[in-house]
Simulated scan of single mutants.
Amino acid sequence: MKLEDIRREYNKDGLRREMLKDSPFAQFDLWLQQAIDAKFSDPTAMVVATVDEHGQPSQRIVLLKQADENGFVFFTNTGSRKAKELKQNNKICLHFPWHEIERQVIVYGEAQPLPTSRVAKYFLSRPKESQLAAWASQQSRPVSSRNALLQTFAGMKEKFAKGEIPLPDFWGGYCVVPSKIEFWQGGEHRLHDRFMYIRQADNSWVIERLNP
Protein backbone atom coordinates (compact mmCIF):
# COMPACT_ATOMS: atom_id res chain seq x y z
CA MET A 1 0.00 0.00 0.00
CA LYS A 2 1.21 3.50 -0.77
CA LEU A 3 1.56 5.69 2.29
CA GLU A 4 -0.03 8.55 0.36
CA ASP A 5 -3.20 6.48 0.07
CA ILE A 6 -3.63 6.09 3.83
CA ARG A 7 -6.19 8.64 4.98
CA ARG A 8 -9.50 8.98 6.78
CA GLU A 9 -12.09 11.60 7.49
CA TYR A 10 -12.27 13.35 10.86
CA ASN A 11 -15.93 13.62 11.76
CA LYS A 12 -16.35 12.69 15.41
CA ASP A 13 -17.01 16.21 16.64
CA GLY A 14 -16.59 19.93 16.03
CA LEU A 15 -15.28 22.80 18.13
CA ARG A 16 -16.81 26.28 18.26
CA ARG A 17 -15.74 29.37 20.15
CA GLU A 18 -18.82 29.31 22.39
CA MET A 19 -17.92 25.78 23.50
CA LEU A 20 -14.57 26.85 24.96
CA LYS A 21 -13.88 27.65 28.61
CA ASP A 22 -12.44 31.10 29.36
CA SER A 23 -9.40 29.46 30.98
CA PRO A 24 -7.18 27.12 28.92
CA PHE A 25 -6.50 25.15 32.11
CA ALA A 26 -10.23 24.51 32.60
CA GLN A 27 -10.50 23.52 28.93
CA PHE A 28 -7.55 21.17 29.28
CA ASP A 29 -9.01 19.60 32.43
CA LEU A 30 -12.26 18.96 30.55
CA TRP A 31 -10.55 17.33 27.58
CA LEU A 32 -8.16 15.32 29.74
CA GLN A 33 -11.05 13.95 31.81
CA GLN A 34 -12.88 12.99 28.64
CA ALA A 35 -9.74 11.18 27.42
CA ILE A 36 -9.56 9.36 30.77
CA ASP A 37 -13.28 8.50 30.63
CA ALA A 38 -12.74 7.10 27.12
CA LYS A 39 -10.31 4.63 28.77
CA PHE A 40 -7.27 5.45 26.65
CA SER A 41 -4.21 3.37 27.50
CA ASP A 42 -2.09 6.42 28.35
CA PRO A 43 -4.26 9.56 28.52
CA THR A 44 -1.52 11.53 30.32
CA ALA A 45 1.20 10.65 27.79
CA MET A 46 2.66 13.74 26.13
CA VAL A 47 5.41 14.40 23.63
CA VAL A 48 8.04 16.72 25.12
CA ALA A 49 10.09 18.72 22.59
CA THR A 50 13.32 20.55 23.46
CA VAL A 51 16.12 22.11 21.41
CA ASP A 52 19.90 21.72 21.78
CA GLU A 53 22.61 24.36 21.41
CA HIS A 54 22.75 23.75 17.65
CA GLY A 55 19.03 24.32 17.18
CA GLN A 56 18.35 20.58 16.73
CA PRO A 57 14.95 19.63 18.20
CA SER A 58 14.45 16.32 19.99
CA GLN A 59 11.31 14.64 21.29
CA ARG A 60 10.32 11.93 23.73
CA ILE A 61 7.15 10.74 25.47
CA VAL A 62 6.75 11.57 29.16
CA LEU A 63 3.79 11.21 31.53
CA LEU A 64 2.07 14.34 32.83
CA LYS A 65 1.93 14.25 36.63
CA GLN A 66 -0.02 17.41 37.43
CA ALA A 67 -1.84 20.19 35.60
CA ASP A 68 -3.29 23.28 37.24
CA GLU A 69 -3.25 27.08 36.94
CA ASN A 70 0.52 27.04 37.57
CA GLY A 71 1.33 24.82 34.60
CA PHE A 72 2.09 21.25 33.54
CA VAL A 73 4.37 19.08 35.69
CA PHE A 74 6.65 16.17 34.79
CA PHE A 75 9.70 14.51 36.38
CA THR A 76 12.95 13.24 34.90
CA ASN A 77 16.62 12.40 35.39
CA THR A 78 18.51 15.71 35.46
CA GLY A 79 21.35 14.11 33.51
CA SER A 80 19.04 13.24 30.62
CA ARG A 81 19.22 14.86 27.22
CA LYS A 82 16.04 16.85 27.76
CA ALA A 83 17.23 18.17 31.14
CA LYS A 84 20.58 19.24 29.68
CA GLU A 85 18.84 20.98 26.80
CA LEU A 86 16.40 22.71 29.12
CA LYS A 87 19.29 23.99 31.22
CA GLN A 88 20.68 25.95 28.28
CA ASN A 89 17.30 26.77 26.71
CA ASN A 90 14.18 26.35 28.81
CA LYS A 91 11.77 26.88 25.91
CA ILE A 92 9.64 23.77 25.59
CA CYS A 93 6.65 22.34 23.73
CA LEU A 94 4.22 19.64 24.94
CA HIS A 95 1.91 17.69 22.65
CA PHE A 96 -1.02 15.53 23.75
CA PRO A 97 -2.14 13.33 20.78
CA TRP A 98 -5.58 11.96 21.60
CA HIS A 99 -6.15 10.26 18.25
CA GLU A 100 -9.15 8.19 19.30
CA ILE A 101 -11.29 11.29 19.80
CA GLU A 102 -9.56 13.26 17.03
CA ARG A 103 -8.08 15.85 19.37
CA GLN A 104 -4.71 17.39 20.07
CA VAL A 105 -3.48 19.87 22.65
CA ILE A 106 -0.18 21.70 22.13
CA VAL A 107 1.45 23.69 24.92
CA TYR A 108 4.16 26.29 24.29
CA GLY A 109 6.06 27.70 27.24
CA GLU A 110 9.06 27.64 29.54
CA ALA A 111 10.15 24.84 31.89
CA GLN A 112 10.83 25.94 35.47
CA PRO A 113 12.70 23.52 37.80
CA LEU A 114 10.67 22.29 40.76
CA PRO A 115 11.97 22.65 44.34
CA THR A 116 13.63 19.58 45.82
CA SER A 117 10.88 19.22 48.43
CA ARG A 118 8.30 18.83 45.68
CA VAL A 119 10.44 16.36 43.75
CA ALA A 120 11.08 14.28 46.89
CA LYS A 121 7.39 14.14 47.74
CA TYR A 122 6.55 12.73 44.33
CA PHE A 123 9.57 10.38 44.21
CA LEU A 124 8.60 8.77 47.52
CA SER A 125 5.07 8.18 46.20
CA ARG A 126 6.34 6.08 43.27
CA PRO A 127 6.34 2.26 43.34
CA LYS A 128 9.57 0.87 44.78
CA GLU A 129 10.58 -0.66 41.43
CA SER A 130 10.25 2.74 39.75
CA GLN A 131 12.41 4.32 42.45
CA LEU A 132 15.06 1.65 41.92
CA ALA A 133 14.90 2.15 38.15
CA ALA A 134 15.59 5.84 38.63
CA TRP A 135 18.76 4.95 40.53
CA ALA A 136 19.79 2.29 38.01
CA SER A 137 19.40 4.34 34.82
CA GLN A 138 21.93 6.91 33.64
CA GLN A 139 19.26 8.24 31.31
CA SER A 140 20.24 9.05 27.71
CA ARG A 141 23.79 7.73 28.18
CA PRO A 142 25.13 4.64 26.32
CA VAL A 143 24.79 1.22 28.00
CA SER A 144 26.54 -1.92 26.77
CA SER A 145 23.51 -4.22 26.95
CA ARG A 146 20.13 -4.74 28.58
CA ASN A 147 21.76 -7.35 30.79
CA ALA A 148 24.15 -4.70 32.12
CA LEU A 149 21.20 -2.47 32.92
CA LEU A 150 19.41 -5.30 34.73
CA GLN A 151 22.55 -6.05 36.72
CA THR A 152 22.71 -2.44 37.84
CA PHE A 153 19.03 -2.60 38.79
CA ALA A 154 19.66 -5.76 40.83
CA GLY A 155 22.58 -4.04 42.56
CA MET A 156 20.39 -1.10 43.53
CA LYS A 157 17.70 -3.48 44.76
CA GLU A 158 20.25 -5.11 47.05
CA LYS A 159 21.72 -1.77 48.16
CA PHE A 160 18.35 -0.36 49.17
CA ALA A 161 16.82 -3.59 50.45
CA LYS A 162 16.08 -2.07 53.84
CA GLY A 163 14.35 1.19 54.59
CA GLU A 164 13.20 3.99 52.30
CA ILE A 165 14.92 4.58 48.98
CA PRO A 166 16.37 8.11 49.03
CA LEU A 167 15.84 10.72 46.33
CA PRO A 168 18.73 10.58 43.83
CA ASP A 169 20.61 13.85 43.53
CA PHE A 170 20.27 13.51 39.75
CA TRP A 171 16.48 13.35 39.69
CA GLY A 172 14.20 16.38 39.39
CA GLY A 173 11.09 17.84 37.86
CA TYR A 174 9.72 20.78 35.90
CA CYS A 175 6.63 22.90 35.75
CA VAL A 176 5.93 24.06 32.21
CA VAL A 177 4.50 27.59 32.44
CA PRO A 178 2.55 28.13 29.20
CA SER A 179 2.50 31.22 27.03
CA LYS A 180 0.22 29.65 24.40
CA ILE A 181 -2.03 26.57 24.35
CA GLU A 182 -3.69 25.23 21.21
CA PHE A 183 -6.78 23.01 21.14
CA TRP A 184 -7.28 21.07 17.89
CA GLN A 185 -10.40 19.15 16.92
CA GLY A 186 -10.48 17.16 13.69
CA GLY A 187 -12.96 18.29 11.05
CA GLU A 188 -14.39 16.97 7.79
CA HIS A 189 -12.49 17.60 4.55
CA ARG A 190 -9.41 18.56 6.62
CA LEU A 191 -11.21 21.71 7.78
CA HIS A 192 -10.08 21.17 11.37
CA ASP A 193 -11.07 23.44 14.24
CA ARG A 194 -8.08 25.09 15.93
CA PHE A 195 -8.15 27.59 18.78
CA MET A 196 -5.12 29.21 20.38
CA TYR A 197 -5.14 30.66 23.89
CA ILE A 198 -2.50 33.39 24.15
CA ARG A 199 -1.35 34.68 27.54
CA GLN A 200 -1.36 38.46 27.96
CA ALA A 201 0.92 40.63 30.11
CA ASP A 202 -1.70 40.71 32.89
CA ASN A 203 -1.98 36.88 32.79
CA SER A 204 -5.39 36.99 31.12
CA TRP A 205 -5.95 34.92 27.96
CA VAL A 206 -7.01 35.90 24.45
CA ILE A 207 -8.50 33.19 22.21
CA GLU A 208 -7.92 33.15 18.45
CA ARG A 209 -9.28 30.75 15.85
CA LEU A 210 -6.55 29.48 13.51
CA ASN A 211 -6.83 28.23 9.96
CA PRO A 212 -6.52 24.44 9.72
Results as ranks from 00 to 15, higher is better:
Q66H: 12
D169L: 00
T152W: 01
T76E: 01
T152K: 13
E53V: 05
G55Q: 06
I101D: 09
H99S: 13
E158N: 12
V51T: 13
S125V: 10
E100V: 12
F170E: 08
F74E: 04
P212E: 05
R17F: 13
Q56L: 09
P113H: 02
Y10R: 11
V62R: 01
F25M: 06
Q200W: 09
W205D: 09
F183E: 06
L94V: 08
N203V: 05
E69T: 15
N211L: 04
I61F: 09
A38E: 13
L86M: 13
K65Q: 12
Q131W: 04
S130E: 08
N77L: 01
F170D: 10
Y174Q: 00
I207L: 09
L114F: 03
K162A: 14
M1V: 14
D169G: 02
V48Y: 12
M196C: 15
S58Q: 02
P115R: 00
R194M: 02
L64R: 09
L20S: 09
E53A: 11
K21W: 02
E110A: 05
R141Y: 15
M1P: 15
V177T: 11
S144H: 07
N77R: 06
V73I: 13
A111Y: 13
T76L: 00
I198W: 04
P212L: 00
A134K: 02
F40M: 14
A161C: 05
P115S: 00
K128V: 10
S145E: 08
A49V: 14
L132I: 15
T116F: 00
R209Q: 14
R209W: 09
Y122A: 02
E100L: 08
Q112A: 07
H192A: 02
A49Y: 10
D193R: 02
Y10A: 06
H192D: 11
K180R: 13
G14A: 13
A148P: 13
D169F: 01
Q200A: 07
S140Q: 04
D193V: 00
L15G: 09
P212D: 06
G79Y: 03
E100K: 13
E129M: 06
I61K: 04
D5Q: 14
T78P: 04
N211P: 08
W31N: 08
Q59G: 05
Q33W: 01
E158H: 10
F160T: 10
L3N: 15
T44H: 14
F96C: 04
R141L: 15
P142G: 01
E158F: 01
L32M: 10
R16N: 15
I92S: 13
Q185G: 06
W98N: 03
K159S: 02
